[in-house]
Design a binder for these strands. Structure first.
Length: 113
DNA sequence: TGCGTGACTTGAC
DNA sequence: CGTCAAGCCACGC
């Protein structure tokens, strides 16, 4: 597997919402995943799922961004790439994928939200 | 200030 | 199961 790098643009926005997204994502345990929507709900804004994705786009290095997937347990596609890396990182933590590239959220979803 | 865009979600078919 | 459309929020031009 060739090395994959993720192009990062801005990082560490000072936005309160962004900071809280990072703080919460940092708490996701190894081998567990959470959805964008679940994070948004946990932060009190159920409709900000897309904003969570926007925040993770420019997150700091210590944020385990790869533990965030969409509500269907699938890795969200993005033009900048990173799909393969995210999948590899998750598999390295013991997260298993179905043949369709999906994660069983009943098993690997972070329940502490 | 306005409008298009996106690492989303949900509900209809 | 799959696809489609609408709603949503923040960003950037």
């Amino acid at each position: 597997m060739p090395p994959i790098t993720i192009p990062r643009r801005r990082r560490g926005s000072a936005s309160p919402f962004f900071s809280r997204v990072y703080a919460l994502v940092r708490r996701i345990p190894r081998g567990r995943v959470a959805s964008y929507g679940a994070i948004a709900r946990a932060l009190g804004d159920p409709r900000a799922a897309r904003t969570v994705g926007w925040a993770l786009r420019a997150c700091a290095d210590d944020v385990p961004w790869h533990r965030v997937v969409n509500a269907q347990g699938m890795i969200s596609w993005r033009p900048t790439g990173g799909y393969q890396l995210q999948r590899a990182l998750l598999r390295g933590e013991g997260v298993r994928f179905t043949r369709g590239g999906r994660i069983d959220l009943e098993r690997f979803g972070w329940r502490a939200l």
